[in-house]
Design a protein around this nucleic acid. Structure first.
Lengths: 356, 356
DNA sequence: CACTGGCGTGACTACGTAGTCATGCGAGCC
DNA sequence: GGCTCGCATGACTACGTAGTCACGCCAGTG
């Protein structure tokens, strides 16, 4: 009658290495060697142990392993609790990359308005070897990481401590630039932007890319409608503001959903797309090709971003050097029917002749 | 010089209860009591320990706790690796419910064509107290669970072992029935269905609800186009098949994305929606209200489904009785402009007078 | 034939936590 | 004034695994 019930049966537990060892007539350490594929085990013993393992349906206890090694083989992902196309696609890509690398995934979502650090703490408490911040939003207070586990942030907007931290990101700026340039190349004098929520790194990047593209050709920068929240409703609201302005001929929306709202707003206002106004979205959601009109849009390669994030993080975890920055993030523009040449803007001014 | 490096420093580790105890001048057990909020600790000692905990930035080691207790306070979620609206919304809702219940979330996705049991094994290996199968697909071989951890499946399609398993689900059948009834009530003689992938439980439910609604009023059951895969592209393909048939006046698509494809197909074929054909979707994605035309659709309450799944699972884990089945899953039909009364179907036959 | 070396194996230990039991001390009671 | 009782605290232990070291045996060598 010493301590926690011998076989009182308070908790069902699988067999441990010790039981396997007893059944196989070897020591626990030998079972450990077999399980971990270590050398110095004779083939006969190995086979015998493996057979017993199957018979007893033995599973290694990761808690014990983690306790001993101080390593969990688990990575935490901090995700916004949103089913938006971008974040959820990225999450899935991250999960795949981690699984491939032999790590399991702990998920923590930042509930509305909740600080990122709360989710990070929850993950640290739980035990993870590293953390990926997926599309962190900037909640004002830069994240001070009191952790010594490596952190990789997909996208900036978080101030990271030195040493064990890194930022990777798709080239959202380039994608926004390409989208804007596409519109300019169609002859539009300038391009209006429907911005996303500016506490999101991704939204700020798109705004910045749009700005850069306009500046590069000397196009005037039109005023911004009030920022949206990625939703079609917010795109509709912003679109209605623009629909009243007759000199709006080209619009770049922060994402496809907002573009959908804008399309509806233009339709309601009697402005034809792309006859009167051209619209470009961002993300290339599956539905984009089937909208009315089919939506021209740009796309980032989420899988590449996720792979890179996981590569960098695991390098940090395992103390290796971070892999070299990949040459280029592919960004794809898909031209569909929502964009077209400018119709009749009075005296046609070619975009590149900065004669504004 | 005994075993694993005293302070050789192979691995950075946070302080343990023992170090906190030493710094606070108490025993490790007392620290344990403070951390777990157990009684029989004097206020002074408690405060002193809490102060030291803050100073040292102590975090309890869950691996040690899990090893000792055999409990992880972690639930595994098996999710399809897809960014579809339904699954990703459900995943988020599950995460929230689990976080609220004090459990952390381990995510495992079933990569394309991979068996569910592989993901389940990965979770079991990792150590979880329970598993939620989110929208399992039916890969033919019914899942034989060799686990003794409780499993809850959101949706059927998986044959579960007795005892520690349960199935919960939203009322997808009712939702499909309501969508179909809406069309019938508009005077359509019958309703055509664009089925989703039939290895998904959710798609089968929608098919079944549609069938039930037709049977209830004696409407003839039209042939099914080839099943889609939830994508707008597949909805477009199926829609083209139906667009050629002049007696198609009402269509119920398995989800909103497929409905979007169908809308496009009808537009391409010169069939007006809702003038010639009415279309109902399923999910009520945010964009539904902003499509051309705005899409009539039905919606399940994912949060309610997730809450119930987590409630049931935690009850199983903690050995309590499963909570009573909630009275009703709210299903919401949102009528928009994609549905309207049948235009000119020769002799108008009211739907409810089963005078086929 | 003695010695060396390497391979197969096992004994022992620590990882950080919580359950069990023991101990000491002060308050309340007769 | 001696007793009991209960609270505050601590000592000890087990959870399942892998690192370290030791041991025994056999082959190869001089």
């Amino acid at each position: 009658m010493t301590t926690t019930g011998a076989e009182g049966g308070r908790r069902r537990r699988g067999p441990g290495m010790t039981e396997v060892a007893r059944a196989a007539g070897v020591s626990q350490k030998t079972v450990s060697r077999v399980v971990n594929g270590e050398p110095h085990v004779s083939p006969e013993v190995r086979d015998r142990v493996l057979r017993v393992i199957r018979e007893l349906d033995y599973r290694p206890n990761t808690a014990a392993r983690a306790l001993l090694l101080g390593r969990y083989r688990r990575i935490g992902v901090v995700s916004l609790g949103s089913s938006l196309y971008g974040p959820s696609t990225l999450l899935i890509a991250l999960e795949r990359a981690m699984q491939r690398a032999g790590y399991s995934v702990a998920l923590a979502s930042t509930l509305e308005g909740q600080k990122v650090s709360v989710a990070v703490d929850a993950l640290l408490e739980q035990g993870v070897d590293g953390i990926v911040l997926s599309e962190p939003i900037d909640d004002g207070t830069p994240l001070r990481l009191s952790s010594d586990v490596p952190v990789v942030s997909v996208g900036e907007g978080v101030e990271l401590a030195q040493g064990t931290c890194a930022v990777v990101g798709g080239d959202g700026i380039a994608a926004a630039r390409i989208a804007t340039e596409h519109l300019l190349s169609l002859g539009h004098r300038t391009v209006w932007h429907l911005p996303g929520p500016q506490d999101w790194w991704a939204a700020r990047d798109r705004l910045r890319g749009w700005r850069e593209a306009l500046a590069a050709v000397g196009a005037p920068e039109p005023p911004l409608p009030s920022p949206g929240d990625w939703s079609p409703a917010s795109g509709y609201a912003a679109g209605r503001q623009l629909a009243g302005l007759s000199d709006v001929t080209a619009v770049f929306a922060a994402n496809d959903d907002m573009a959908i709202g804008a399309l509806r707003a233009f339709a309601d206002a009697g402005r034809a797309v792309p006859g009167d106004v051209s619209v470009v979205g961002y993300d290339d959601i599956p539905a984009a090709a089937y909208l009315s009109p089919p939506l021209t849009t740009v796309r980032q390669n989420f899988a590449a971003v996720a792979d890179r994030a996981v590569d960098v993080l695991i390098a940090l975890i395992e103390g290796r050097a971070a892999p070299a920055e990949p040459a280029d993030q592919a960004v794809e523009l898909t031209v569909r029917a929502s964009t077209g040449p400018v119709r009749d803007p009075g005296p046609r001014i070619p975009a590149r002749s900065r004669t504004t």
